[in-house]
């Protein structure tokens, strides 16, 4: 008899995260657990999954640093722009003692175990119109849709834009009509949601290495034998690695694809963006909650290079 692991996720069944977890994670644990995914936020609404796990109403979900920072101010560090350098750096950070410490905070307070970080891609600024963006000053007055949470809105302001929260489902129409000037997302999202149909340029700001976390109820986790826990942990790492490989491969192809669709794709003065954004974060109230010396420890972890 196996345990059923109900996973509540907001992404679609065809999303690379959904596909890879079903291909790699689910079969690896099939001997002792049945993986039962619910997509499109149909089981629990986006942003309510962690509470559902903590209250014993759900077994698994995919969460984000922004979501975690709603409960744990120290987690806001990972919502800040230009902290992670690339996907490899991100994986290394969370497989080090930094990840262990940060995961423990969540497990102790909410009974949720974070199995692994999942690479989502580099976020870039995707705009209508033909303005040339080199520095944060060039985004001044640009109405930029950012997801609806204070941490995202702060990132938008730090980039120099006028951020506005808007439901994801409204973004396409809002871009089409010019209600907003742009949005930020990794390139695969720009393709999947067809934002390239209604925008004119992609500024490769790489302002955030977007991340998700595969999470499971600690009660459920503790009900497994140590051997089963090892199998599940390895399955989670394997799935995360495959997602990273596929997602970064896709990002490399997409810049060319968007150019073939008539968009301008170019790199701004990233150093100017980095120093502007980092200075604003270190000055902000967020930084006061970050664990002492943690930024330096993150910087010391090796990345892709």
């Amino acid at each position: 008899d196996t345990v059923t692991l109900r996973m509540s996720a907001v992404q679609t069944p065809t999303d690379v995260r959904s596909v890879v977890i079903e291909e790699i994670f689910a079969p690896a644990i099939a001997d002792f657990a049945t993986y039962e995914p619910h997509y499109n936020g149909t089981l629990f609404r986006q942003g309510t999954e962690l509470e559902a796990i903590a209250r014993g109403n759900l077994e698994m979900s995919i969460t984000s640093a922004q979501e975690l920072s709603n409960y744990f101010p120290e987690w806001s560090m990972f919502t800040s722009g230009y902290l992670m350098r690339d996907g490899r750096h991100q994986i290394n950070v969370f497989q080090s003692d930094i990840g262990e410490e940060m995961y423990q905070i969540v497990e102790d307070a909410m009974g949720i175990k974070l199995l692994t970080v999942i690479y989502l891609g580099q976020r870039h600024v995707n705009l209508r119109g033909d303005r040339e963006v080199t520095t944060p000053e060039d985004l001044s007055g640009v109405i930029l849709r950012m997801p609806d949470a204070d941490s995202w809105q702060f990132l938008g302001r730090a980039l120099g834009a006028n951020p506005v929260p808007m439901a994801f489902g409204e973004v396409y129409t809002a871009l089409q009509t010019g209600a907003i000037d742009g949005q930020d997302n990794p390139l695969p999202t720009v393709r999947d949601s067809r934002f390239y149909e209604v925008t004119d340029q992609i500024v490769l700001t790489s302002h955030l290495v977007d991340m998700n976390f595969l999470s499971i109820s600690a009660d459920v986790w503790n009900s497994f034998t140590p051997e089963q826990q090892d199998v599940m942990q390895q399955a989670a790492y394997d799935a995360a690695e495959e997602i990273y490989v596929r997602q970064s491969g896709l990002e490399n192809e997409l810049a060319t694809y968007f150019e073939s669709q008539g968009l301008r794709v170019y790199t701004p003065d990233v150093d100017a963006f980095r120093s502007h954004v980092q200075a604003l974060y270190l000055d902000s109230q967020y930084a006061q909650d970050w664990p002492e010396g943690m930024v330096d420890r993150v910087n010391a972890v090796p990345g892709e290079e």
């Binding site: 396409y172 067809r194 149909e197 209604v198």
Partner: peptide, 9 residues
């Protein structure tokens, strides 16, 4: 459009 991966336009 979101569940079917088709163009909203």
């Amino acid at each position: 459009a979101l569940v079917s991966d088709t163009s909203i336009g």
